[in-house]
Design a protein around this nucleic acid. Structure first.
Length: 592
RNA sequence: GGUCCCGUAGCUCAGUUGGAUAGAGCAACAGCCUUCUAAGCUGUGGGUCACACGUUCGAAUCGUGUCGGGAUCACCA
């Protein structure tokens, strides 16, 4: 079935053409949901059409209102004109037909394949420390956008670039060499990523201490920061790594393998995976080829010292280094190479980078460079920029150990889920395995929804003192609504016959029309790269259902037809909730 | 200093691309379980949409300026 709002647009355009011989563009029309204090379901705003048609609001409303009913008598049952607003009432017949058409459709909301490929890069961790809350926001955003794009009809490739080389890893390596006495995750019983992260923190403590002593001995602080022995040693490790020194590479591989084992465990736990993982150590050389090519085509220029630059001042940006004077690549060089590689592999139409807003400038430069290199994928680059997750005390800093660790947070959330569930005592007949699964589903639901319901661009403040809510505008509220519906549907089966001869209650009709907006909500979240629209929509659906539920009984409806209608309404609501939550990466339980 | 982002109830956030009396949740208060799951429902209180000017039938939304907060401008990643 075609959705309502486009139909209203089409008819309005047609009516204006027939009655006033004027052309108006469909998207120039303003259609909105009628405010609850007025009668009607959808409102056409007439103000913009008054000048065009030369009509008064009242006469335009009358002509248009009559026209709507005349053209689609099955769809529209009435209209009202209030000021410059034409309020259209949809017929119960239409709403019931819509419900009949979709209540069994498990793919409701899924759009047809459009033949386009979108690549989504997210997560992208450094291998010197474990994942924290900021990474979780990144992961959930990336995962959700991938699911939303699939629902919108795209082929999606989920990728991850692992920043597995560089000075930060060398710092962990050095501290391990100095302090570990050969300890490993196995001998210490630590998770691999935490183990390596521990030495990263250790390095910084050594470093701070050395700097302090050098300053005490009379050295300038800037000089001390460069001269501190551990820093010089770490830099030497990086040089040795680039030179391919076997024992350094061995240590590097060993420490990274510990980290990967740790990451895998966390990814598994939050339900994340990738179709393709790239490693910076495998791709950083590719960028240099592209730089060389760009140099030939005079996109880049070389300075006397051998360093390579691009001049972006004409575009309002600065000069940017793309290759060091010693010929080694910098951060952006790798990104240029990676973009090239991904396009060659997947022939993407769109390439989405889920990266924090601290890199807005970097991503702007990257896209501009790709454009200047006349790459076909340049225009398809989209930076899904999201705000940092901060603590009440300010930014999280892994160097200083002031981060909300992902594993710790997940543990804590599970504990809270368990406590809340036990207090309510509704699943005492669950076996242990079912309980654990429920705690996991609820805790992840709370956390993912918490991070996803806010528009990505906004920075968020997370207060560890106040645990994440399970009531109100939360994931568990929506999950609970689903469980409630399932409970009803377990008690009675839906009869196959078509319901007839009943009028809808306002709460029933509202809910049906809200469910009707599910596909367009997916489209909007997709087009705006913003899962929060979907998250907020699903809250509205759950809220509407609960209001309906409190007001009307399903199983004890007045008559059989009404009961059947309400069962179907339950079925479709549950489908939209389950499906929509899946697009947010959130599971919904049948009981809780 | 240049560029970019943000400022809506005590707190956390919506606000459908300029529309009707700006909405939710949390927190506070008052009700609702012998009827489908009370992780729920209903109600009350709470606002100079940072501020000023402008654009027009109409501005939280668009423009300019001011104030406040943040990011970034490295031969770091």
């Amino acid at each position: 079935m075609e959705s309502i709002q486009p139909i209203i647009r089409q008819i309005a355009v047609q009516l204006i053409k027939e009655n006033y011989q004027k052309e108006v563009a469909e998207d120039a029309l303003q259609i909105q949901q009628t405010k609850p204090e007025f009668e009607g379901d959808y409102t056409l705003v007439l103000f913009p059409l008054l000048k065009l048609t030369g009509q008064s609001p009242a006469s335009l409303a009358a002509t248009m209102g009559e026209g709507f009913i005349e053209m689609q008598p099955n769809l529209f049952s009435g209209y009202q004109s209030v000021g410059g607003f034409l309020n259209l009432t949809l017929s119960d017949e239409y709403s019931i037909k819509f419900l009949e058409h979709h209540y069994e459709d498990s793919n409701y909301g899924q759009q047809a394949h459009n033949g386009k490929t979108v690549l989504i890069e997210y997560s992208s961790p450094n291998t010197n420390k474990p994942l924290h809350l900021g990474h979780l926001r990144n992961n959930f955003l990336g995962w959700s956008m991938a699911a939303i794009y699939e629902a919108a009809g795209y082929r999606v490739v989920k990728t991850c670039i692992v920043n597995d080389r560089g000075i930060h890893i060398c710092k962990s390596m050095l501290a391990w060499q100095l302090l570990a006495n050969g300890a490993t995750p196995e001998t210490t019983g630590m998770k691999g990523d935490h183990f390596v992260g521990h030495y990263y923190v250790q390095f910084n403590e050594l470093y701070k201490e050395e700097v302090k002593q050098l300053i005490a001995s009379g050295m300038q602080s800037e000089v001390a920061e460069k001269e501190a022995p551990v820093m010089k040693a770490a830099q030497q490790l990086l040089l040795d790594w680039e030179a391919g020194k076997p024992e350094v590479l061995d240590l590097w591989r060993k420490m990274n393998s510990w980290v990967y084992a740790g990451f895998d465990a966390t990814y598994q736990r939050i339900g994340s995976r990738f179709d393709q993982t790239y490693f910076e150590s495998d791709t950083y050389l590719l960028g240099k080829q592209t730089v060389a090519e760009g140099l030939q085509h005079h996109v880049f220029h070389q300075k006397e010292d051998g360093s390579v630059w691009i001049d972006l001042t004409a575009d309002g940006l600065d000069e940017k280094l793309v290759q060091r004077k010693d010929g080694t690549s910098v951060y952006i060089t790798q990104d240029i190479g990676l973009a090239e590689l991904r396009y060659q592999t997947y022939a993407t139409d769109t390439s989405i980078y889920v990266i924090g807003d601290e890199q807005n400038y970097h991503m702007k430069v990257l896209q501009l460079i790709c454009k200047k290199l006349q790459r076909p994928y340049a225009d398809g680059i989209y930076h899904l920029s999201y705000g940092m997750v901060e603590l009440p005390t300010g930014k999280m800093k892994s160097r200083e150990g002031t981060v909300v660790d992902a594993d710790d947070l997940l543990d804590e959330m599970e504990l809270v889920a368990q406590q809340k569930t036990e207090v309510l005592g509704k699943v005492e007949d669950f076996i242990e395995e079912e309980r654990q699964h429920l705690y996991r589903v609820l805790s992840l639901g709370a956390l993912k929804y918490f991070l996803l319901r806010v528009g990505p661009k906004k920075k968020m403040i997370f207060n560890p003192q106040e645990s994440i809510d399970f009531q109100g505008h939360t994931g568990p509220f929506i999950q609970y609504t689903h469980a409630r519906i399932c409970s009803i549907l377990r008690k009675e089966n839906i009869a196959p016959h078509t319901v007839a001869g009943i009028n809808l209650q306002p709460l029933e009709k509202n809910l049906i029309l809200e469910l009707e907006r599910y596909p367009q909500t997916i489209s909007q979240s997709c087009a705006e790269h913003d899962p929060s629209h979907l998250a907020n929509y699903l809250y509205g659906v759950a809220k509407s259902f609960n209001t309906f539920y409190a007001q009307h009984s399903v199983l004890h409806a007045d008559n059989n037809e009404q009961r059947q209608l309400r069962l179907k309404l339950c079925a479709l609501t549950a489908k939209v909730i389950a499906n929509g939550m899946r697009l947010l990466g959130i599971e919904v339980p049948e009981r809780m």
